[in-house]
Write a protein that binds this DNA or RNA. Structure first.
Lengths: 256, 256
DNA sequence: ATGCCGGCTTGATCTGCATCAAACCAGATA
DNA sequence: TATCTGGTTTGATGCAGATCAAGCCGGCAT
């Protein structure tokens, strides 16, 4: 692995508090991999030998049952994934597929667990990352159980707006079918949901969406700090933990 | 706090690997509280100063939005809750209410975080607990998104059977309205779902349910190790982590 | 251009589940 | 014993969202 890559890793919040020895031990056997779009990284039930850190590209986490499939999260850089399985040395509960050409750092699970047991500061960072992921899922369950499909879409758009700088125009960062599955509906129904938001100033053109009447949309969406994580967009690598700690409010993510 | 209580705590998997010093520091300011049924322990958005450990009774975790309310989990002893918020020193994303008269250990969040930063072995145990909780939620989301209401109920019953020893008769451990909310449906619909399971040998009498044809029910439910956590019933205190690590398969819980 | 192919939309229909309303039932209270 | 109350059930109805089936459109290869 190149030193410039190592520097990027070292700057991750996950390693911020780690001793140098820990960092070296944990990343010693690590390697950086590039995958084309559409690559299956992991199937449900696979034993998990590595912690994955997405540095570039996009990865979809999915669950399946009886020929049905659903999107649990779409990850964007920088995100760890399947951390929980690694910490428990268990099999994965989610499948993982690249949506775009992606650059992924793979860290040995054994090394990670050894590092955690050796270095309390590092272990604490990992705990915080896990806690952030946990809270992302709590938000996700509340979103699913308490809101209708149109309400979920409206909130998705509002959150997207915040994440993309607050402008009137936002871009859906992946195919609509993936978005539909993420929001827990069929592609057909997503189309119709967009049509209903027409009355709230929402105009769709491919992946670009113009929020023509943000106030009206927001009155419909009624975003809540205890469901949606409206963490402001920041350029530095940001862990799930940081997003969750932000000023003591909270908000939504396509967080894993 | 009585020494006999302290011994119970010390035996929890969470503290199994902790040094004595850590244990004493973390539990130093802890106290054991009894609450009557129906007590609100925590509201959504409350700052969280304590880690709660349910030693006896039952606690419901809930989420709300726009006058609507849903049950996210029903906890039974021994369970930690709001651990993630404590680790991040954040506000709670869930409300917590006692369903029965309950005995709850409250541990200072500050003390817990200090202990984690001091003692890597303890910190690792906390990480594992968190990871277990995370996986419980992943199961929960998959259950919600991939299965219909009747399928969720069928799987709930199958899981209950395993948890209660495998016999033909099971007991719903709380009100049906709570179960309905936990499974993501209305009480009316839960009634009708039970009625549909009549064809699968399910007979309901108040909180007692007889599974007259377990094989047929199970063919309908199609339980999956990657959604349902069929951890066998064990008497010793068992953390979320242990349930998740069990033989490398997995299964469902009303896990938080 | 022409054709194909995959993702998206639109329309018609069907179904699962919610909603509203009333009856039922059991335990608590008077 | 009679009454009240809150949880549960049952019935009638409505709606959200799934499904099925064409069409549509844009990218890509021939």
């Amino acid at each position: 692995m190149r030193t410039t890559d190592l520097d990027r890793i070292r700057a991750l919040p996950l390693f911020a508090g780690a001793e140098d020895d820990t960092f070296n031990e944990v990343t010693g056997g690590a390697f950086l991999q590039r995958f084309p779009a559409g690559t299956t990284l992991l199937l449900e039930g696979d034993p998990v030998d590595f912690l994955y850190i997405l540095l570039d590209g996009q990865v979809e986490l999915q669950g399946t049952w009886k020929e049905k499939e659903t999107t649990l999260a779409v990850l964007r850089p920088v995100s760890t994934f399947i951390l929980a399985a690694v910490v428990l040395d268990a099999t994965s509960l989610m499948g993982a597929v690249t949506l775009d050409r992606s650059e992924i750092l793979m860290i040995s699970g054994n090394a990670l667990r050894r590092g955690m047991k050796r270095d309390a500061a590092f272990c604490f960072e990992v705990s915080q990352e896990l806690a952030g992921c946990y809270r992302g899922l709590v938000r996700s369950v509340k979103n699913l159980k308490l809101r209708s499909a149109v309400e979920r879409l409206a909130n998705y758009l509002v959150t997207l707006q915040v994440r993309q700088g607050g402008g009137i125009d936002v871009t859906i960062p992946h195919e609509k079918r993936v978005l539909a599955s993420l929001l827990g509906m069929t592609p057909e129904n997503l189309s119709r949901a967009f049509a209903k938001l027409d009355a709230y100033g929402v105009v769709v053109d491919g992946n670009r969406v113009r929020l023509g009447n943000p106030d009206k949309l927001s009155r419909l969406a009624r975003p809540s700090a205890w469901i949606d994580n409206h963490t402001p967009p920041i350029e530095e690598p940001l862990g799930k933990a940081e997003r969750e700690r932000w000023p003591l409010s909270g908000a939504q993510r396509s967080c894993a």
